[in-house]
């Protein structure tokens, strides 16, 4: 069982390596799956974590001090609020857009017969 697992893991790593070594000229234009390299992901995660950790060293001024009873007003002062907010707002927008696309998408020739 354990060996099987190992084999599959090996396979995936070799596949990844293959994908990496593939030069752009070899990829067919019809293929539409952007490949984002593992090092890019690593860099992305590191920079994101640094931007959050930076908050330990700075003094953030308080938002909405007059609105103490407001839950949202208080949340805006939480640690890491901006990161969470960016992530949630953008993911929400993407999901909303994806959901609405069911109703809103039409073929490119949709308006061809209209004035």
């Amino acid at each position: 069982m354990a060996t099987k697992k190992k084999v599959t893991r090996k396979n995936t790593t070799t596949n990844k390596a293959k994908a990496k070594t593939k030069t752009p000229e070899e990829t067919s234009p019809a293929m539409d799956n952007p490949y984002i390299s593992a090092s890019f992901w690593k860099a992305m995660w590191i920079i994101c974590s640094i931007s959050v950790l930076l908050e330990f060293f700075i003094h953030r001024h308080k938002h909405f001090e007059d609105l103490e009873s407001s839950v949202l007003g208080n949340i805006s002062n939480w640690f890491g609020f901006y990161g969470m907010f960016g992530l949630i707002a953008c993911s929400g927008s993407i999901l909303l857009a994806k959901g609405l696309s069911v109703f809103l998408k039409a073929n490119e020739d949709y308006y061809d017969d209209t004035p």
Partner: peptide, 18 residues
């Protein structure tokens, strides 16, 4: 710093949901 944080996480969600 907070602006950077927000932009970075917005960018992160772009690549997560690519």
């Amino acid at each position: 710093a907070t602006k950077f944080q927000m932009l970075l996480f917005s960018g992160l969600s772009f690549f997560l949901f690519l």
